[in-house]
Design a binder for these strands. Sequence first.
DNA 1: TTGTTTGATTGATTTAGCCTATTGAAAATG
DNA 2: CATTTTCAATAGGCTAAATCAATCAAACAA
Lengths: 297, 297
Amino acid sequence: MIDKLDFLLALARECHFGRAADACGVTQPTLSAGIKQLEETLGVLLVNRGSRFRSFTPEGERVLDWARRIVGDARALREDINALRHGLTGRLRIAAIPTALAMVASLTTPFRARHPNVQFTILSRTSIEVLAELDNLEIDAGITYLDNEPLGRVNTIPLYPERYRLLTSTGAPLGERTSVTWAEVAQVPLCLLTPDMQNRRIINRLLNRTGAESRPMLESDSMIVLFSHVRTGKWASVMPAKLAETLGLTQTLRAIPIVEPDEVHTIGLVIPQREPMTPLTAALVAEAQRLAPALSD
Amino acid sequence: MIDKLDFLLALARECHFGRAADACGVTQPTLSAGIKQLEETLGVLLVNRGSRFRSFTPEGERVLDWARRIVGDARALREDINALRHGLTGRLRIAAIPTALAMVASLTTPFRARHPNVQFTILSRTSIEVLAELDNLEIDAGITYLDNEPLGRVNTIPLYPERYRLLTSTGAPLGERTSVTWAEVAQVPLCLLTPDMQNRRIINRLLNRTGAESRPMLESDSMIVLFSHVRTGKWASVMPAKLAETLGLTQTLRAIPIVEPDEVHTIGLVIPQREPMTPLTAALVAEAQRLAPALSD
DNA sequence: TTGTTTGATTGATTTAGCCTATTGAAAATG
DNA sequence: CATTTTCAATAGGCTAAATCAATCAAACAA
């Protein structure tokens, strides 16, 4: 039963019988049969098919909701008992928005000191993807904006405020200033994240509000790309203050506060709303709560 | 997997492999094998055995907690999808303390008018048993005291206040009074519930507080026994006001308020703390919330 | 058309679940 | 202390379920 519900979850993730089967480690006929059997025992059609996967029926969506709970709890059970036996072990899968990626280290490092046998998988994702994968049980926790998009059935632990800095070099335009306005930033050629990232949308909104047209010269979905361009001294970018500090400022590389408006967004840990939590998630939450006071300036 | 967890739940209820197997509709070797398989997949001993069932290990208790959730959710899934297909159907299992049994009709009757295809099982239980069976998933809801014993992981919906009346006949001692004190009641030979019932313990406490020794002449675990004795005109009892009214007063049968102190306890619906609720439970809660205002005098 | 993708179907094989019968050990009983 | 009873584990055998590899048919795309 639980295996079949897991099949359904995989199908929801992949929208494709074959790939879903691969993800579950079974062959495609096995997964097809599993879904069909679910439909028979429940007496309803769960998937709209037409020679290929189309969508879930309303009943299918409902079953998916329950499947997320039940499969999640079944995993938590194993994890819980494992933790009782061997202490905390296993793998913690975390997805973070690009601007928060650099700070993950300040969460994982003290965590690892406490629980040396836990492995990590850290993924770079958009804020939308973070929430979707949290729902799908593809990740255990996310790090994203807490105060913008509607969060689903999740619990949140605030980590730090995101404030914006113009990252540029002495010698470049605005490079010697102690603060700049968004209107001034709008005049500078920038390296920014791609528009599917919420950080970019926030910056766009702030730039457009000045009336000026923002014309980023370079887009990427990777902060490393943006930062390495700025490090050449020939480019500028807008980054969260925390990130700029983490990546390291030099004598010529400066992070200049941007004012008017001095907007702030909260970044935090997002975990599935499950009571009780899995031991790994509980430990991560504890670590986040220890870390948060040190980060909130 | 879910079946095995169900085996474990049955074993927790029965504390006996054979009876647990019966309850699950399988033979004893099947259940034994199921438990053993659970232990193997989780890698821990769940049950302390010594030629017969002794107890659960700490890990076993932990697995039981999860099993309650997972099995409960799996049932809720089926019920939920069934409700989508055929409207509300199935069986609602309710356990109530004896003094609340008569009022169950005012919950079930309007419920049945709204959902004609739902069947009921109503059980008379002590308040302790109500909570235990709620935990074990043996019942869907309970009706018991909300303000006395510590309730576990449950949600509550207040239904009505329980106030106490001396149920006796004109002609009998105190039979003509408009109110009596607990000290006076203590002097009368009474028919009361057995001491395992919380109602009896409440009455005992109130009687003993007057300093007098309470000497019930007749004990029973059935309100029908108590009431039929009082109806002969030769006996008296202490009953909740709501119950006396429901059973019906006559010209000679009187329910006299007992004062000093005028103690009140709240009776309510108790349901498992599960989000979302099963459709049947949700409908019952809705009915209880409609009913409560009419009952709270 | 022709080749590709995708999910259903088929038939063989392995696995899991369950039952009856029996055994062994501890408790209860005389 | 001997006997009986109770209880759970074990053994052996059967059936149903699960899974896989291979194939098929429909829908697309080129």
